[in-house]
């Protein structure tokens, strides 16, 4: 953890917004900058803890990879699955052009 909470810049917040594809106005970005900075300050308490040699916990239950037999079964009908799609064409989800 950094020694002091980084003062997030508006450019950094804009960059995070792009990474997670959340559109935001300049006003929203500024408000997020203030709030995220305040939240990150709360994380500083973790710095006081010595975690040398402590293994990380990803899951509270020690489950290993769970495997099953690969047996074919019926799928949901395409019509039902596509019923929630905002845009569709034939049996496909319709997406916007990836390349301009």
């Amino acid at each position: 953890m950094p020694d002091r909470t980084p003062q997030l810049t508006i450019e950094e917040v804009r960059h995070i917004a792009i990474l997670c594809r959340v559109g935001a106005t300049d006003e929203e970005l500024e408000r997020l900058r203030e709030q995220l900075t305040h939240i990150l300050e709360q994380f500083q308490v973790l710095q006081e803890i010595d975690t040398e040699g402590v293994p990380p916990t990803g899951h509270s239950v020690a489950l290993h990879s769970v495997m099953r037999d690969d047996e074919p079964g019926p799928s949901y009908p395409a019509e039902e699955v596509l019923a929630n799609a905002p845009r569709q064409e034939d049996d496909y989800f319709r997406v916007r052009a990836v390349l301009e």
Partner: peptide, 15 residues
């Protein structure tokens, strides 16, 4: 490392 991994290690301590 500074945030997510550190938090997961403290998670071990709390557990």
């Amino acid at each position: 490392d500074a945030y997510y991994l550190k938090a997961q290690k403290v998670r071990t301590i709390i557990t």
